[in-house]
């Protein structure tokens, strides 16, 4: 169940942007392309399911889009004030609340999506593919 070459090229292109961000000292250029890489990595993981049902592309789009939305909101509200506002949300500053109540749980939600999309039959296909490859060599 190898993925389409184009996905790997897009993956590599985004990684190049992150590398450029490191040398240009731009945290946005490091982070934002990487958030798309997260979506691509999930797409690679569910590649067979996406090929069967292209509508399932919503899963990586949701996770990557969620991260972009949360980090962009954080970016905007902390431009002039690291707290992101004068009020408190569950005792936290708004910016810290976005991190602890948004960005941290999104990782757990991504894991939950893995379970919801899980299809054990894929492993048999993978095994056959690895076997064919081994025999071909």
């Amino acid at each position: 169940m190898y993925v389409n070459d184009r996905i790997m090229y897009v993956f590599s292109g985004l990684i190049v942007l992150s590398l450029a961000g490191m040398f240009m000292q731009s945290w946005r250029l490091i982070l934002y392309p990487y958030l798309i890489v997260i979506g691509l990595a999930i797409t690679i993981g569910i590649w067979r399911a996406v090929k069967r049902s292209p509508a399932k592309i919503w899963v990586p789009a949701l996770v990557a889009g969620g991260y972009v939305a949360l980090f962009a909101t954080l970016d905007i509200i902390t431009r002039n004030d690291p707290a992101g506002g004068n009020h408190y949300f569950l005792g936290m500053t708004p910016s810290l609340a976005i991190y602890l109540l948004g960005i941290l749980p999104l990782a757990v939600i991504a894991s939950l999506l893995y379970a919801l999309l899980f299809d054990a039959e894929d492993t048999e296909t993978l095994k056959q593919e690895f076997k064919r490859e081994e025999a071909a060599e």
Binding site: M1, I38, A41, I42, I44, G45, I46, Y99, I103, L104, L106, A107, V108, A110, S111, L113, Y114, D122, T123, E124, L126, K127, F130, K131, E134
Partner: peptide, 25 residues
């Protein structure tokens, strides 16, 4: 620390089934 839980999701997505299938060879 906030990145590490995402690491679990990405690892399971990327290699969970693939590593298991390799092991089953």
């Amino acid at each position: 620390l906030v990145a590490a839980p995402l690491g679990f999701a990405l690892t399971w997505f990327l290699v969970g089934k693939r590593m298991w299938a390799m092991g089953d060879l």
